[in-house]
Design a protein around this nucleic acid. Structure first.
Lengths: 355, 355
DNA sequence: ATAATTTACACAAACGATTGTGAAATCATT
DNA sequence: AATGATTTCACAATCGTTTGTGTAAATTAT
């Protein structure tokens, strides 16, 4: 009896949620034609394509990625999890990722773990629910195992680690050659004539700090210098901690003539302490840090530091993701991309008058 | 004849894309029940709810936000567009936004305009296609009109501006009281006994720079000092530009005894130039910047600067978005949230021995 | 001229969740 | 005991796309 009427959609304020169905109706063709015309399918005549494109523009049709992703099973979203977005390093990597991703038509969802595993796990679930096509992550400081990543693997979502990862597990990752970086920085200090080079290092369960320290040891060995445990100080890499370590080092019976810290903030703390004690840098103590943060060029003297190739890291991480995506189903090989660090020598370590 | 069999889904590698349908089959109930049980609908018995929840956990069912969003018409995604993610200011605001958003169950898609309107427009389209529930944006430097935001309005997607916005148009925004910030910084310099205070200012079509300059002028007037156009220099706020402006100012017949720059990088450039000329800060020239970047505490002397309440800004922007979301349909009032800046006084401006 | 191919399009079933409507069963009310 | 309320759940349509299959017409080959 009652005629079935499409419910008039006057809901959306003044909206124009024009769909493919609208285009189809307007043009008197099927939705199939619209869909294929828009995706440039070969089975659609050029005239029809033109017409569809024109009308789409006219009604300013906006495709609904959600619907497409739902149907196709894969979205154009990728998830990125970092401990925190602030701080030059992660911001810069995210910059690299986002730039590469947007070029490839992907959007990136950003998540912060706040250096907390629990948050990290929640983030992973959220991203899986959002049906991301892949996840790029730098694990939090207190991530000690890989249990929560199992779920990701089960869902068949490509997972790429960058910078920080856990030892032992074989995963897809792009990392800096931290060992080489540590080696370069330490070698440089030794070349400058320093003979008692100290090291301020971070937590050893993270690959990055472990490797930087190993590079430090490598350099000592290369120069035939026996490592002195009293010159190696654990630190949480904060400004205060850096200052404290420096103070401790100065209190040694035989204090160092150079310090290589695994982070720039820590080395800045050391610098400030040295200056407060009236010691000269680099004449009394030469300094080198890690990360090449902006502050290295603001400090006085400017700080020598190892650059982490942040942007390349972001790009590489995304590229690795795309490779995993297309290689899906293939025997999953674990790929590791290793970037080479670059030492930026500045005044804080220049003892010899070079050149 | 042939029995209709559900196509066996052995597609996904080793995947467990378990859906509500799976849960329903397993439990011998309808999908309706599953859906309602999961969303704690009143019409589902406690026993059933328990069973569903338990099974969901067991099969580690992961809800598909895409499908839900499609059906409901609104997603749990918000889009954030910034000129670039690097740099303390934006990174920090994004941090604030993400933190607030994730607490409220929203995920944030991050986009960079690269200070380019064209990119900005593309970003907007991408976000609309992704069916975001709202868009938070700080416009690019060369965004001169609001044309491309029309589409957003048409789609009925809440739009919130933060920090940067265009003059004249009435929009929802959360901004810093830049005028007050400029006033505070300048007043402080005047209180320190400076009488020829210069200003390095940014492009005047952006609210922020315009207002900071106005605050500068306000302070001069309050102290009964006539503004001197030769003391106001246009700049693009880079390090080099800051140094250049400082050089120009020093070349004046009657050089300034203080400089207030609308950005920290610029004031750092000025500082470096002053030191290279052998002038003392603050004795010869006192300095104050804007943004309270990390570098202000690394420079020597440490730089006085106006803090922009970045995290609060992010939180406020998100909160404003949620308000718009729930007020949807209501007469759309333009809401402006104004945050109060905070002056951090440091050595670069302390001429008087305070306290 | 007829068969084989290509071109151009429509039908309809998915994708995974939500929800208005309705219908049994259970319980309380007078 | 009969009516009404309440609880508990299933049906089926729907969101906006994509895509395998089907089928005319137009083109080419034999």
């Amino acid at each position: 009896m009652a005629t079935r009427r499409t419910p008039s959609k006057e809901t959306s304020a003044s909206g124009s949620p024009v769909s493919m169905a609208d285009l189809a109706r307007e043009l008197g063709v099927s939705m199939t034609t619209i869909s294929r015309a828009l995706s440039d399918h070969h089975s659609i005549g050029p005239a029809t394509k033109q017409a569809v494109l024109k009308l789409a523009k006219k009604l300013n049709y906006q495709p609904n990625h959600l619907a497409a992703a739902l149907r196709k099973g894969k979205s154009k979203l990728i998830g990125v999890i970092v401990p925190y977005i602030e701080g030059r390093f992660f911001a810069s990597v995210v910059h690299g990722i986002e730039t590469a991703a947007s070029k490839a038509g992907f959007s990136v969802i950003i998540c912060q773990s706040g250096e907390d595993v629990e948050h990290e796990r929640k983030n992973l679930e959220t991203l899986l629910s959002a049906q991301v096509a892949g996840i790029l992550i730098s694990v939090s400081l207190n991530t000690l195992d890989f249990k929560h990543f199992e779920k990701v693997r089960k869902h068949g979502v490509p997972l790429v680690f960058f910078d920080r990862l856990l030892e032992g597990d074989h995963v897809n990752a792009v990392v800096l050659n931290d060992r080489e970086g540590g080696y370069q920085a330490t070698s440089h200090l030794l070349e400058q004539g320093c003979r008692r080079v100290a090291h301020i290092c971070g937590t050893q369960h993270l690959n990055i700090y472990k490797n930087r320290r190993q590079g430090y040891l490598d350099a000592l060995q290369r120069y035939g210098i026996a490592p002195d445990d009293s010159l190696i100080r654990d630190s949480n890499m904060t400004l205060e901690s850096g200052a404290q370590c420096m103070a401790d080092l100065l209190a040694l019976p035989n204090p160092p003539d150079a310090v290589f810290a695994a982070g720039d903030t820590a080395i800045l703390g050391a610098l400030q302490l040295l200056k407060s004690r009236g010691l000269r840098v680099p004449q009394d103590v030469a300094l080198a840090g890690f990360s090449n943060e902006a502050l290295t060029q603001v400090a006085e003297p400017m700080l020598t530091s190892v650059d982490q190739r942040t942007e390349e890291m972001g790009q590489a991480a995304f590229r690795l993701f795309t490779e995993l995506l297309s290689a899906e189903g293939t025997a999953f090989s674990q790929r590791q991309v290793v970037l080479q660090p670059q030492l930026f020598v500045r005044a804080s370590s220049l003892r010899k008058d070079t050149i």
